[in-house]
Amino acid sequence: MVDTPASANRERLVANLARVAKGDQAALRAVYDTTAAKLFGVCLRISGDREAAEDILQKVYLKVWDRAGRFDAERASPITWLCAIARNTAIDWRRANGSTAHLPESAAAIVEDDSPLAPEVIDAATQRARIFDCLDALDERPRHAIRAAFFDGLTYSQLAEAMAVPLGTLKSWVRRGLIQLKGCLDDA
């Protein structure tokens, strides 16, 4: 896999986050410019509301500003780290706004959505296709549960309640699904 552009982008992002940790506002702007669309997409997916997503996104970058010093480039990819902040902030919003009841449906709609790919990194597009294909290959119930866990931030017990199945049953679906997912991703 040729990943030169992706790794160059990553290095730049890591360097910018290090500058953000020292209080460099221009560096935060650079981080924003390269990641806002991606993180906004995450916020929008989870909140389901454009206006809320913009509020959430503001909070996300304020958190990045406060926490950049805690980012450890040895341990995590900067995008994974940023996505985790976006996802958690959006999930907090979602919980605070008490809209968990219909979440599994929103998660179900996710794969059907064929939003255009970012043109920049073909590698990312390939990965995206792969994880979506692998999710699609799962049985409906584990697929549904894994998506809802990721996009809606539901825990096992919340999922069991939302899907009206016993906790043990749900766990065994999800674990089987995760093992299958890994096999699919590693094989591809």
Partner: peptide
Amino acid sequence: WGKRFEPLCAGFEEQPSPALW
């Protein structure tokens, strides 16, 4: 695992309002 799920984050890019920055 975090890396495996990462593409899910990147799948839905959308531009926020220019007033956001």
